[in-house]
Amino acid sequence: MIEFIQGYYAYWAIVILMLIGLYGMLLKRNLVKKLIGMTVLQSSVILLFVASGTKWNGTVPILDVGRSVDDPALYINPLPHTLMLTAIVVGVATLGVAFALLISVYRRYQTLDEKTLLKQMQ
């Protein structure tokens, strides 16, 4: 059991982070808190992808004249990294749109509390 936890500790931590993020998005009533939760969730997915590609004896995937370029075992797979760069872009774009919405919600209702908002929408 201990070994199982030890071997996969990164994944367990990531799962906990995901749950924290989901909790923030779904159960927090304040819209800013929801966005904080969203950031946490997105970061945890990024960690998940990066952790999946990592290996102990690999090095960063940057061209280094001193090392052999031909041996892929020496490098960490860079594909998940590029994917995550894109995911970060997507995340920041989402955040931007979310803030535009947030401001406009506040401008119209003077509150950021979801419960109050839903009541006022009726």
């Binding site: 904080i36 950031t39 590609g53 920041v92 955040l95």
Partner: peptide
């Protein structure tokens, strides 16, 4: 974990841009 690029970006975006956006909001 070896993803230098991602780390760099995450730092710029997460601690920089996102924080600024949160502050402005």
């Amino acid at each position: 974990m070896g993803a230098v690029d991602v780390g760099f970006t995450e730092a710029v975006v997460g601690a920089g841009i996102s924080a600024v956006l949160f502050m402005v909001a």
